[in-house]
Every structure is written in C-alpha cells, then in structure tokens.
Amino acid sequence: MKLKAKHQRLTLVVGAMIALGGAGALAFSTLGSKATYFYAPSDLVGKAPPTEAIRLGGMVEKGTLKKDGSTVHFIVTDNARTWPVAYTGILPDLFREGQGVIAEGKIDPASGVFTADTILAKHDEKYMPPEVAGALHKVAGKVE
C-alpha cells in the first residue's frame, strides 16, 4: 500500500514534468522571434522598413568605418546582407571593424540609413592574450 502511494507520486511528478515541458515548448514556439534582442540585416532586407525603434545587430564590415566629425558611418553585415548605419556619440571601447555590434535606433524613411542613438559592442566567445592573437594574425596574414 505504501509502495503504491510512492509510485503514484512518482507518476504524478513525471507526468507533471512532461506536461510542463510541453507547455514550455508551446510557449517557446509562439514566443519564438519575439524574444530576439536584435534583428540581423537579413531580417530587414526586402521587407517594409519598420517605423518604430528597433535594434540592428551584426558585424561592423571591415573597411567601411568612416568618421565625419563626431558622427560615424559604417555598414553592418551578417555575412549575407548588409545595412548602412549612422551614429553620433561616444563609441564603446570594444567597438571596432570586424567585431560584433548592436545599434538601437530607427530607419530613416528617406535615405534608408539606420540612424542609431545607442551603440553596444558585442564580443565573441574567444578569449586569448594579445601575443597569441598577434601570432595568429601573422599566420593568417602569411596564408593570405
């Protein structure tokens, strides 16, 4: 009798966990893209440009960074599509060409340029000392 009650509780907990997992998966599938923190250029190209403030993220394309007084212009890429960005203000330390960036702002309806009022630097998951990075860079340079 005691064993039976124990098994009943086990079944109940396992059943509840399965139901919970199902509910979570369902919530996940409807939530889906709404939990995304930023859009990539591929999410925006070819669609009606959103008029509200959004976040645009990707890599700062190498060789596209131009300084014009306190305003910077650069192109954000996700390696498939690109989008031009303009920003006036102080850039974070880690902002640089070839690194990740997230821009908050609006798309200018006339020019199509993404006008950012906040810039966040996104870094990758690699960590190494500068000497190692320098050595890797040299090796990569020789191969090229």
């Binding site: 996940f28 893209s33 939990a35 995304t36 923190y37 930023f38 859009y39 990539a40 993220g57 990740g100 997230i102 966040l120 996104k122 870094h123 990758d124 998951e125 690699k126 960590y127 190494m128 000392p129 190692v132």
Partner: peptide
C-alpha cells in the same frame, strides 16, 4: 543559441574551448 542576444555564445563546449590555456 536560440535567440539573438547581446551575450556571446558558449566558450567552453564538449568539442573544445575558445579560451586560451593561460586563461
């Protein structure tokens, strides 16, 4: 991995680490 986040992806995976040995 599921969403675009400001936080970077995992550095240590079963397949290896993207962190230098000294770190």
């Amino acid at each position: 991995e599921w969403w675009n986040t400001l936080h970077q992806g995992p550095s240590i995976k079963l397949t290896g680490s993207a962190i230098d040995g000294h770190m």
